[in-house]
Amino acid sequence: MDITLTGLTHRYKPKTPFERLALDDIHLSITSGSFLAIIGHTGSGKSTLIQHLNGLLKPSEGTMQVGNLTLSAQGKKQPLKELRRRVGIVFQYPEHQLFDETVEKDVMFGPMNFGVSEEQARQRAHAMIELVGLPAEVLTKSPFDLSGGQMRRVAIAGVLAMEPEVLVLDEPTAGLDPKGRREIMDLFYRLHKEKGLTTILVTHSMEDAAHYADRIVVMEQGRVYLEGTPSEVFREREMLQRASLDVPETLQFLLEWQQRSKQALTLSSFTIEDTARVIAQSFGEKGDEHAR
């Protein structure tokens, strides 16, 4: 589903002494079926931006278009229900989206709210809980009697159970253990491909942005600061550092090595294997027998 933001501006607490301009004239198009990563330092406006995508926040100026649905500053009748059916958001803090007595009811709520039968919703809930790596025992527990990472997984299960067409993820792996982080990111990516989802990932992991995204948007003080493919964006190290970001750790390491060894090296992807290969070659070029 194509998404277009035109002159999107958001002010919190307008016309009060606490007014804060959180988004400033954002223009952005996200192609249906693409995977977009949004990066940017703390307070740059990422969460504010994505909360417009399902109408939780309303633009102060400008418009947002999701498929044939439009949300605008002036609009009287906003298509919220339809928007929320299409766009599923995993919030930055899972506690903000969990509410029901049990995990099972919590995950079933979304689908049932959009007309799925109770039986089917239950089936989905059970399947999703397994998919996010939780044991079936948690279904009868209160979502608030879980560990932080377990809550995160329940929140993800709840959003996936709604089978949205647009999947919006606000730091979905914060709080997950390293194995879970990899598994859940791979799960999102698999669903993205299999179901042709449009996926928007807000992340502080430059590695995930490099690995999964087709395009990256860098936010800075409520504006789009940089935009492009991962290799285009991560070519701009100085610009990123000025926005208090950096390149992925593989590239950081390679640059460090390049400086030491005084050889010009290029990385074609950002994986560890690729980095190791390039460094091993730099041994080879010296006529060293170690490298194959």
Partner: peptide, 17 residues
């Protein structure tokens, strides 16, 4: 998981370093 440097170290060994 292993920290980044350990993983990279292993990958480098695999490449013959």
């Amino acid at each position: 998981d292993l920290p980044f440097s350990l993983k990279l170290g292993l990958a480098l060994k695999e490449q013959g370093v």
